[in-house]
């Protein structure tokens, strides 16, 4: 039962992920991404991780997706066909290239997964306690993994400053210069905000 559900959710997540890149309207891309996140949180649930599943939904599906939607609505991005006259390669050529690369990667990953021999004991969990037990997780996060945790906070701070640096308008820039920098503005904050 659990295995069937896992494959079902995995296939759905993959289908939604393809939808993210395939969709012509940015809005549909975001909605597909949302679907993919939902499937992923379902997989977390199957693995016995209700906390991670809930966090996934709250943070990614809740907060970040809403932000994405806001940005897309604000910038009024329509059909991406309008953006395509700048590209060098033809549309079908690019699709072939990207699709081929993605398929090759997927094949490699599948090969690895098929031959994987996973008979290890999870060494990170203290004896006699399950990781889905929230106090255990919190305890590990603030003792053994305190350093990566703080490093992550530093990472977020640096990202925040970086995004603000790229996005804020220069003090005292003339209208002409502001015009010149305008095309550069939407992209970097969007990409930096992507989940990583």
């Amino acid at each position: 039962m659990a295995e069937t559900l896992f494959y079902l959710l995995g296939a759905l997540a993959l289908a939604f992920a393809v939808g993210v890149v395939r969709a012509r309207m940015p809005l549909f891309s975001v909605l597909s991404l949302l679907g993919s996140f939902f499937c992923l949180s379902g997989i977390y649930l199957l693995l016995g991780f209700p906390f991670l599943a809930a966090t996934q939904l709250l943070v990614y599906a809740g907060a970040i997706m809403v932000l994405f939607l806001f940005v897309i609505m604000l910038l009024n991005l329509g059909d991406e066909a309008q953006l395509e006259r700048h590209a060098g390669l033809s549309l079908s050529g690019r699709r072939l290239f990207v699709g081929g690369t993605a398929a090759a990667l997927l094949g490699i990953v599948g090969l690895a997964a098929a031959q994987m021999n996973t008979t290890f004991v999870a060494g990170e969990v203290p004896q006699g306690r399950a990781l889905d037990d929230l106090p255990t997780l919190a305890g590990l996060l603030f003792t053994r993994y305190m350093l990566p945790f703080e490093a992550a906070s530093l990472l977020l701070l640096a990202t925040m400053v970086g995004v603000i640096v790229l996005a804020k308008r220069q003090r005292g820039t003339s209208a002409v210069e502001a015009e010149a920098e305008a095309p550069a503005l939407p992209a970097p904050p969007l990409s930096s905000g992507a989940p990583r």
Binding site: A158, T159, G162, T173, P183, A184, A187, P188, S191, S192
Partner: peptide
């Protein structure tokens, strides 16, 4: 941390198109 700080640094000259291209 190194990469994200570098992305922002590469695009620091916002007036310049090349700098924005570099960051992107």
């Amino acid at each position: 941390l190194l990469s994200l700080a570098s992305y922002a640094l590469a695009g620091f000259h916002k007036g310049s198109k090349r700098s924005a291209e570099a960051a992107l």
